[in-house]
Each structure stands twice: as C-alpha cells, then as structure tokens.
C-alpha cells in the first residue's frame, strides 16, 4: 500500500455490544488518520455506508449469530483484501458463546414458543466461516491495539501477534500476584497480554477477556492444578476458563488430565 493512496476501510458489525467500534470511535488518533483512510462502510457513524463494496481492510466486530451474519461475512471476504476480526466476539465467539445449552433451549427460555422471522444461530467466531487474516484481541481491545494493527498495515508491513501472557506484564509492573497472594482464580497465566494487566493492577483476578494465548502454549492443565488446590471443582474451572474461550477445543481435555491423575 503506497504512502499517499487513501486506504479503503470498512467497519462491519455482527452480533456484539458495539464496544470495539466505540473504542475505535473514541480514539482522538482516528482524526489524525482520516487523511489516509477512506471509510466506505461504518454504519455506527455514517449513513453513507455501503456494505457490498471493495475495501482494502475490513474490520469485523461481533460473533456470527444469525444466518444473515453468515452471508455478510462471506460478502465481506469477497470484497476485502485484508480481513481483521476485532474483539472477543469476532475472534473467539464472545461471552454469548459461554454456554453448553442447545440453541432451542436458550430460545425457549427467552422467547417461549414465539417465532421471529429472522434465523438465529449459536454464536460462533468469524473464522468459522471465512479466512481471517489478522486478529485484534480484547473485550474491548485497547486503543493501542488498533493503532498498532492499522498503523502497521498502513505503512505496508504486517502486525505481529502478542505471544506472551498477562502474567508477564503483571510481573514487569510489580503488582501483587492476585493468584498466589490473594488466592483468587486469576486467568492471567493463560490470557494474551496487551492490557498492561489492568485487572490485577486493581487487585482483581483476570477473567481472560483477551482470550487464551495462541501457539498451543496456553497451559490450561497447569493452571487447573493450581485452581484445584484452591478448592475449585472441575466444572468451576472449566466454566471460568470458557468465559471468553468457549470454542477453545483444548480446555476440557487438559483440565481432565489434572482431575484424572488424582483419581488414580
């Protein structure tokens, strides 16, 4: 991407709280970038938005939770050179995925026997349906996540993934360890860094909003062992680890290892 050409971007919404777009909209830095960006689609801020037009960078917030959402992500993929999944819903399916109950049971609890003319689905990450080129993590992402990702793409380079956990940032800042000193179920050891350990800084255990760290180095089993020593049950541990990682296929198997060892 050349230095002077305006980059066409679209910010598309699936099912979410709109917090990723709000975070992006709240950045004063966005105004400085306007000279480099041509916003083709951003319904939250612009009536003059078109969903079905080519863009260089497509930002997608939200989980795929309706049949319409499936069609939309396919359309976006077709139109975009680079697709960026933004935030916990788009990347990991979001907190709306934090359930084992089947869709019809959820539907009945809420709507009874009534029907609505649109088709709902169980919430799923965008990558379930299309190829995603880059992820911006967080619920919500930090402002600097946007600056780094877009800034890097705008100069024609490619942003890196963060590959170390919240614990690293927490130790570097010297906060008291919520897990060891306060004995609270902190998910910092397996959650992707980038938040400056915001919650531990407030004496609060991490709930994992940036999602489990990638490259298969999220040691759910090690942390499960610590939680188990603190008296948490298998179900409690799995539920906590799944708040923001409901679709992670590793959690149950790794936690089970800890509980089976004890049975022997």
């Amino acid at each position: 991407m050349g230095q002077n050409k305006r980059i066409k971007v679209g910010f598309y919404a699936l099912t979410s709280c709109y917090g990723c777009q709000l975070q992006f909209a709240m950045m004063d830095e966005l105004l400085n970038a306007l000279g480099r960006l041509e916003v083709k689609c951003w319904y939250m801020l612009d009536r003059n938005s078109v969903e079905d037009e080519p863009v260089d960078i497509a930002l997608i917030e939200g989980s795929v939770s309706t049949e319409e959402g499936v069609e939309l992500v396919k359309k976006i993929r077709k139109n975009a050179k680079i697709v960026v999944a933004v935030g916990a819903c788009a990347v990991q399916g979001g907190v709306q995925s934090w359930t084992d109950k089947p869709l019809d049971e959820l539907w009945k609890t809420v709507y009874g026997d009534a029907k609505v003319k649109f088709q709902p689905k169980m919430a799923e990450p965008v990558s379930k349906y299309i190829k995603v080129d880059y992820n911006i993590y967080g619920c919500p992402p930090e402002k600097r996540d946007f600056i780094y990702a877009l800034g890097t793409l705008l100069i024609g380079s490619w942003p890196e993934d963060i590959d170390y956990p919240v614990c690293v940032e927490c130790r570097l800042r010297g906060y008291p360890c919520v897990l060891i000193e306060k004995s609270e179920p902190c998910l910092g050891p397996l959650t992707r860094a980038g938040c400056d350990a915001r919650c531990p800084a407030h004496g609060i255990p991490c709930i994992g909003c940036r999602g489990a760290i990638g490259y298969d180095v999220a040691w759910f089993d090690s942390l499960a062992r610590v939680f188990k020593e603190r008296g948490l049950t298998r179900e409690e541990i799995i539920e906590r680890m799944k708040i923001f990682n409901a679709h992670n296929p590793k959690i149950e198997g790794m936690v089970d290892k800890i509980f089976e060892v004890v049975k022997e």
Partner: peptide
C-alpha cells in the same frame, strides 16, 4: 436484526461474580 445473545439464559447457573 441484531442477533440474540440470551444473556439471562447463559448466566443462570454461573458463579455470581463471573
């Protein structure tokens, strides 16, 4: 057309602080 998220149904049975 915003998709449903079933927050009540999801949180029933979950720990209060979570």
């Amino acid at each position: 057309i915003e998709g449903p998220r079933f927050f009540e149904a999801i949180t029933v049975g979950k720990k209060l602080d979570e």
